[in-house]
Design a protein around this nucleic acid. Structure first.
Length: 480
RNA sequence: GCCCCGUUCGUCUAGUGGCCUAGGACAUAGCCCUCUCAAGGCUAAAACACGGGUUCGAUUCCCGUACGGGGUACCA
């Protein structure tokens, strides 16, 4: 039986869950689900200076929100310290690493002097073993550097194909700091070996780290995993997506009223596609269609406009019962409904949601649109008034509509349109000639859901009141 | 500077030598549907970075150039 596939997502807790990170996690997750593998979450907190608990929390919350559940972890890289040190000591003992007694000041001076030409000069490679041991025993501060061998390091990248680095272009990098803590490359390799990771799928900003890490695997006598490097996500200006582009954290999108399933779908399509023309795809479909081979090499610009479109599609198909808990707090916060009305008027609110969700692109647009139906008085849109009420017959048409609604029985959505059509017919005009002025009277706008639903939701009393107010306004305008 | 990676409509992308008069999606414009809006349908405009090869034939393969991105830390 082949070894099970094991992948990991390893964010550093130095901020928020960036959409780029989320996308990396997503591809790992998809791959694990597709192959029946295991998805491990590991927090890379070896840099104590920059790591903090709060951002770990934020990252975990972000992943949970977007639906990226992990099978093992979260593990903390810092907990592996003894193993990291043991691995470094082992390499030291076996000669694949050596102590470096150069001080940070010395190195900084050389760097300053040589500017861009700088590369560690391997000075301490020449320190004899006995001397190195003696100086260390005497307590002289030192780091441990990896002794980069001659030759070429290459791998068959799952995304990029054959990739190779001349070892000569790799400096003898530090693996253990003066304080005995590991540098990223050592910690990652040590942990990935320990966690039996079979596929390392990460951002392609890690490509230059890969040969170093392969060298480490080899020095530690471990099996080198498969590597796949994902293209970056860019902002609209083609630069790496960052804060100045606006929303870049997963949490930002939650705040913006984006549905997690929409972000999930959208991110999956950034740098990957199913090979056919499907775009709106549920998780199961994505898992079904996913393959590492179809991941692109080219970095992608994050198109917030298309995300909104996709969100609209998800909003449309989301059952109102599921949408309700998301919208209800916003309605309450806007003061549009009282807390208890969320329960007492639930059916009515669900009906309203049903109408609005197909017209909204984000959850947050819904309360804005709902205001018209929940708060008096109506705010008239001047353009709508000017266009739809300009006909002198408007008052009569509103009057006819009013009459039709006043005695309507039963008060159902289905009964309303025929009644209004009959009113229009009795005036000898098309339905639109009644519906449009009425729409403005009821909603203040020339755009709304179907007039039958609008009338129904407002209720007889509410509808008549708004019509009366419109007629008063018209009368006042005519008089002056 | 050096080392890597990349380059198809404005954006996301299909395309693995002839199926390409380069397909789809978002956005844009028009039309249809229609009580308006949204959704939907139809249509339009819109791309193979450039230069050399290889080949009967290159978007597709190779090499350059240009441009973009990443790395070059006792950060991850």
């Amino acid at each position: 039986m082949p070894d099970p596939i094991r992948v990991r997502f390893a964010p550093s807790p130095t901020g928020y869950l960036h959409v780029g990170g989320a996308r990396t996690a997503l591809f790992n997750w998809l791959f694990a689900r597709k192959t029946g593998g295991v998805f491990v979450l590991r927090i890379e907190d070896t840099d104590r200076e920059r790591s903090n608990e709060a951002s770990t929390r934020t990252i975990l919350d972000g992943m949970t929100w977007v639906g990226l559940t992990w099978d093992e972890g979260p593990f903390h890289q810092a907990d592996g310290l003894p193993r990291h040190q043991a691995d470094a000591r082992r390499m030291l003992a076996e000669g694949s690493a050596y102590r470096c007694f150069c001080t940070p000041e010395e190195l900084a001076a050389k760097r300053e002097q040589m500017k861009q030409e700088y590369r560690y000069d391997r000075k301490c490679r020449a320190v004899p073993r006995e001397e190195s041991d003696a100086r260390a025993a005497a307590g002289e501060p030192h780091t441990i550097r990896f002794r980069v061998p001659e030759g070429v390091t290459q791998w068959d990248d799952v995304v990029h194909g054959e990739t190779r680095f001349e070892n000569a272009s790799i400096e003898d990098f530090i693996i253990l700091r003066t304080d005995g803590t590991p540098i990223y490359n050592l910690a990652v390799v040590s942990d990935d070996i320990d966690m039996r990771i079979t596929h390392v799928i990460r951002g392609d900003d890690h490509i230059p780290n890969t040969p170093k890490q392969i060298l480490l695997y080899q020095a530690l006598g471990a099996t080198v995993p498969a590597f796949g490097h994902l293209p970056m996500i860019l902002g609209p200006d083609g630069k790496k997506l960052s804060k100045r582009h606006g929303a870049t954290a997963v949490g930002d999108y939650a705040q913006l009223g984006i549905l997690p399933e929409a972000l999930f779908n959208f991110l999956a399509l950034l740098g990957w596609n199913p090979g056919d023309e499907r775009e709106v795809m549920e998780k199961d479909e994505l898992i079904q269609a996913f393959s590492l081979e179809r991941i692109n090499r080219k970095s992608a610009v994050f198109d917030a406009e298309k995300l909104l479109w996709m969100n609209g599609r998800y909003l449309e198909k989301k059952p109102v019962e599921e949408l309700f808990p998301l919208v209800a707090p916003l309605l309450a916060a806007e003061g549009l409904v009282r807390e208890e009305e969320l329960e007492t008027r639930r059916e009515w609110l669900l009906h309203l949601l049903e109408l609005l969700k197909v017209r909204a692109r984000s959850v947050h647009e819904i309360p804005k649109m709902a205001r018209t139906y929940l708060a008096d008085p109506v705010e008239y849109d001047q353009d709508a008034v000017a266009r739809q009420w300009k006909d002198p017959a408007t008052a009569d048409r509103l009057g006819a509509a009013r009459a039709a609604l006043e005695g309507l029985q039963p008060w159902t959505v289905e009964a309303i349109e025929p009644a209004l059509r009959a009113a229009a017919e009795s005036l000898g005009v098309g339905f639109g000639k009644v519906a449009q002025p009425l729409r403005v009277a009821l909603t203040g706008s020339s755009a709304s859901p179907g007039i039958d639903h609008v009338v129904y939701l407002l209720g007889r009393e509410g509808a008549l009141r708004r019509i009366d107010r419109a007629r008063e306004r018209l009368a006042a305008a005519t008089a002056s």
